[in-house]
Write a protein that binds this DNA or RNA. Structure first.
Lengths: 117, 117
DNA sequence: CGACTCTATCGCTGATCGTCGATTTGTGAA
DNA sequence: TTCACAAATCGACGATCAGCGATAGAGTCG
């Protein structure tokens, strides 16, 4: 276990709004227990290397690498190469934007009425 | 368009916590643009019949019925039969529980530190 | 240079998904 | 009963997914 670099997300632009297609793409990336557990492994803003992530899954290295690719392409993880290793960290702003978009799908009646009809 | 009955969710118990497998199952149900759009169709707490939902999708009746089944089995929709029709409405508490669980995946560092390490 | 480590990608398999038309089931009306 | 209608289910098809071992490529250390 190597010394972790600072959080990877710090210099990325914050995510504000999401389209329906983007929501579906993010949901698809989350649609597997192994991928949820991988995200759960991340503590706060601390990046992790693939080897450690693999060690905490009961799956082949190639399978975990594939799950990481899926999470990365959905912008739920950010990858930073560091010599032979790759550090991953969670894109919390994307997760939050998705969670907010879900809440908007389920707007409270009272809020809806308050905005004018 | 028939007169809608009162909200279907009113007498269902609220959803509090979700397991990893349940999160993945909900995400899988959300992992298709057509299903997100179906949820978007619902206004506040107003139930809808299948015919109206089909009319707002560009998909065959059988395809929409299948999407509704998937949303229903993930507890994102609740169905109530009324004569030859079926009224659907959104289970907002499930959507909210899922959204909260996602936020927990992305706990802010400051909150995490405040709870003791 | 060669040997080794770390990670990503390839190729394959079986399983599941998305879509449709056709059919079935259930209900109410004539 | 007979008919019409609403919705669910069936059967089939191609497409995509999840898993693995094997391999490739990039980097490090002697």
């Amino acid at each position: 276990m190597t010394q972790a670099p600072p959080c990877c997300e710090e210099n990325l632009p914050p995510v504000l709004v999401i389209t329906v297609d983007e929501m579906a793409a993010i949901a698809k990336a989350l649609a597997h227990p192994a991928r949820i557990r991988i995200l759960e492994q991340f503590d706060e803003c601390v990046p992790r290397v693939v080897g450690d992530i693999v060690a905490d899954c009961r799956l082949a290295q190639s399978t975990v690498s594939e799950h990481l690719r899926i999470l990365r392409e959905a912008n739920l993880l950010f990858a930073r190469k560091d010599g032979p290793r790759t550090w991953y960290c969670v894109r919390r702003s994307v997760l939050h934007a998705f969670s907010r978009a879900l809440d908007d799908l389920a707007i409270e009646p009272v809020l809806h009425q308050a905005s004018g009809h």
